[in-house]
Simulated scan of single mutants.
Amino acid sequence: MAILKVGTLNEAKLMSVRHVFGETFDVYGYKVPSGVPSQPLTDEETKQGAVNRAIYLIEKEKADIALGLEGGVMVINTHYFLCNWGALVTNAGCAFVAGGARIPLPDEVVGSLKEGMELGDVMDHYANKLNVRKNEGAVGILTNLQVTRSEMFSHINRLLKGQFERANMSS
């Protein structure tokens, strides 16, 4: 089976990749830099973090196919939203990107983000839990577990897989 290298060790993200790509690829997680701030604060930074993670794996880990996932925050007018992006890159130079759902963040969360805290740490305090980012994620807390972090990234992974399959059909 082919190997898919993923630029994360976060189990919620890896679970989402295995769920979508596991029948086609052996999935391996790697600790890689995102090349963006640890708390991306724009849609562009979040997308770039996902792309950078995938490209790093192609260039430094000699991956044939690599996937980067990044969670972040974006602002529309003065309202803060949770956002997430994914990128799938091949060593043949093909690249695919996809963005996910948006959900507003509560004012008490936004205040801490403006002070420079990372969303994962803020959500641990907000929900009075540990390791929210590795489990249900902010989206799980904010949706009462109707959508978890793994599910949110699974949606992105399905978008990426579909683009990748479609491109391979036409080549």
Rank of each mutant, 00 (worst) to 15 (best):
T90S: 15
W85R: 05
I103C: 09
I103L: 15
L160H: 10
L160Q: 11
T148S: 15
M15Q: 12
G72T: 13
L88S: 12
H125L: 13
L4G: 04
V110D: 11
G22A: 02
V139T: 14
G35N: 05
Q163I: 01
T46W: 02
G99I: 04
L41W: 06
E118R: 09
K13A: 11
I76H: 11
D26L: 07
G116C: 08
V147W: 06
T24K: 05
T8R: 09
Q48F: 01
I103W: 13
A138I: 08
L159R: 13
D26F: 02
Q163L: 14
G71R: 08
L105E: 09
V36Y: 01
A138R: 10
L145M: 12
L67G: 06
E61P: 05
V73M: 14
R133F: 12
L159Y: 07
M1Y: 02
Q163W: 02
V17T: 08
G49S: 01
G49L: 02
I156P: 00
Q39E: 12
K5G: 02
G35I: 07
S16P: 05
H19D: 12
Q146G: 05
V17Q: 01
L57H: 11
S112F: 08
C83W: 03
D26A: 07
N128W: 02
K60P: 03
G72K: 11
K5C: 03
I141R: 03
A63W: 05
L9H: 12
A12C: 04
N84E: 14
L9C: 12
V109L: 13
I76S: 13
A50Y: 01
L57A: 07
S112W: 07
E115V: 04
M15P: 00
P40K: 05
I141P: 00
V89T: 14
Q48P: 04
K47F: 01
S171T: 14
R18I: 01
G100N: 13
F96T: 09
R53C: 06
V27M: 05
L142P: 02
I156R: 01
F96N: 09
Y30V: 08
Y126G: 10
G93L: 03
K31Q: 15
L113V: 14
G86Y: 09
E108V: 13
K60H: 12
Y56L: 04
A12Y: 04
I55R: 07
F21P: 06
Q146T: 10
K13W: 09
M123A: 10
L142M: 06
G72D: 15
V122E: 14
G100H: 12
I55G: 00
V109G: 12
T148D: 02
L159M: 15
M152H: 10
S150C: 09
M1R: 00
V122R: 11
E11F: 03
V36N: 04
E59S: 10
V51R: 02
D124T: 12
L67M: 14
